[in-house]
Each structure stands twice: as C-alpha cells, then as structure tokens.
Design a protein around this nucleic acid. Structure first.
Lengths: 159, 159
DNA sequence: GTAACTGCAAATGGTTTGCAAACCT
DNA sequence: AGGTTTGCAAACCATTTGCAGTTAC
C-alpha cells in the first residue's frame, strides 16, 4: 500500500494545485484507477467499480473527473480500434507513452514498459520535419495465453 | 490515371472474387477512396463526396461498403484519439500498417511510408511471447506547416 | 428470378450537456 | 456564503440495424 499511498497523495496535490476540489467521487475514482492500474478501464468500468465501493456516483461525474485527470496529465485517454476510450495511469514518466499489446483473440491489453522509439522519433523529426511530442504504438497479435490454448486445441483435434 | 485505373480494376476483381456485387454505390465509394488516397476520410466525408458525384447514396450503405472493404483488407479502419473511424487504402503491401503523424495544432494526418518497426517487433516477440500480426503507430506533435506558422507569429509579436 | 443490396428511419451505445440541488473550502 | 460539483435526464453523434422495395447477375 506504500506506493499507492504516495501516488494517491501526489495526485491529490496536483488536483488541489490546479484549483479543483477534492470530492469523495474524485478520490474514489483515483483510488479505482490506482488499484486497477494494469487494466485499461473504460469510463463505464470505472463507474461500476466506484459504485461497488458502496458509494453512489453518476456516470457523468466519472466522465468529468476523467476529463480533468486527462487535462492534468495524471492519466492518458487511449482509443483502441473499438472506439471506446480507455484510461491509463501516467505515473512517474510524464514523458512518452508506453506501448500496448492488443490480443486479437481475447482482447486483452498488455503493457510494454520500454520506450524503444527514440531512434525512430529522431528519424521522423529529421526526415519529415515533424516535432514529435508523444506517440501511440499498439501491436496487434496473439498473446501468450491464446497461443498456448491454440496449441492445446490442435492437440485435441489430432488426438 | 493509369495507376488509379489498375488499382480500381484490382479492387473490383477482389470484390467479385469474394462474391460481392458490383453496385454503382460501391464503385463510387472505391473511386472516392482512390481519388483521396492521402486524406484519411471518415465515413461521413466519404458519404458526402460520393453524393457530390451527383449520385444519391445512403450513409448506411457507405458504412456497409467500408465494412466489406475492411474485411477484404482493401482498406484499413483507423481510430485516432477522437474516436471517429477513418479509412485508408491498403494498396500494395498487404503487410503491416504504415505510420501516421497527427498534428496537435491543425489535426492534419501525414503518412510515414517506411515500416521501421521490424527490430522492435522481434524484441516484442522474444521478450513478451506475443505473436505480432500488425501494428498501429501514431506520432503526436507539430507538423512542418504549423511549426513555421508559429515562428512567424513569434516574429509578429516581437516586431 | 432471386438472393444480395439499398435507403430510409429508427435504434444503439458511448459520451456530453443543462440545470436544480448538494457540497467543499 | 459562493462558486464548484454532482446526478439525473435529455441531448448528441457516430455507427448499426430492420425492413420494404430495388437491383445485379
């Protein structure tokens, strides 16, 4: 809980400094985001999780909170191919976005922490005269789990 | 027009082979996509352009046509951060997606033809046991035009 | 001739907005 | 106390769907 606590404090400070009030709804939303850091939740999912914490909250409030948090760069708003916005804590590196692995079978989203794009960004800046501020990189493919399952199924068919 | 003609023929063949009828609406939609190859049009924009060709067409038909073309991998459906689907001809390389440069000022979308990600994909497959099929890479930043405009404006202020 | 296709209008689903009541500070 | 925030319901907007009439093959 140590790490969560300090992140929590940091985020609350950021909100406060930017002149926003610390309402229970906002605190709970941040809490959920911290608890499910790896899950790339949609607004709806966050809404349900906050509600499950025995507190009433409106979906609109969740959207409004997420908008604020995005503005303050506390979270990133991501849109994968289904067009639904998903949110992603932006702790630590205020710099560039990490990458994502989107499984075409089960829809899971895994994170790739390394950046890997420094060289390519330099190329882009040089060759296209485009000043890179950030990037979004998603690989589409088959995750480890699904690949293993596929193998098992093949086995079933043949055996 | 030579290149467009042959692309057009190729696409019509693909449709035909897959058992789809060649209706005027579909032909015109493909025509628009070929003419505006660089523009990353939305469904609505395609709809308006087809209608402008003096033919009536329904928005639903455009969507349905785009769905078919996406299925047949003739076009790619792309979703940038605004959540609106945009479409992109997939001529030549049925392989991996090229990259995009999205300008944060003017919203323009430029293409990067080179792939640049072979090495990184290999790393991903090795380190994450994730079988990469495709990727989406978008750089967010300031395009050449906007950067130049910014400089001019600075000049105005100071002079 | 007939299954596929079209166009309209209505439905859907994620997101936004208006407004009166409730709440931080 | 006063501006901010909330929650509901209605509005919005891109996209999808149902269905009766039309068309490509």
């Amino acid at each position: 809980m140590k790490k969560l606590d300090s992140s929590f404090k940091l985020i609350k400070e950021k909100l406060h400094k930017a002149g926003f009030k610390l309402t229970p709804q906002r605190e709970l939303t941040v809490e959920v985001l911290l608890e499910k850091e790896k899950d790339h939740l949609s607004a709806e999912e966050i809404y349900l999780l906050v509600k499950a914490k025995n507190t009433g909250i409106g979906l609109a409030t969740v959207y409004r909170t997420l908008e604020i948090l995005t503005e303050l760069q506390i979270i990133n708003k991501l849109t994968f191919q289904d067009g639904i916005a998903r949110y992603d804590l932006n702790m630590g590196s205020d710099k560039h976005q990490h990458h994502h692995l989107l499984c075409l079978k089960c829809g899971s989203i895994e994170e790739v922490k390394q950046d890997m794009l420094f060289e390519i960004e330099k190329e882009i800046e040089r060759d296209y005269h485009f000043l890179v501020k950030d990037h979004r990189l998603t690989f589409h493919g088959i995750c480890r789990n699904c690949a293993e399952q596929d193998k098992e199924e093949e086995g079933d068919v043949n055996g």
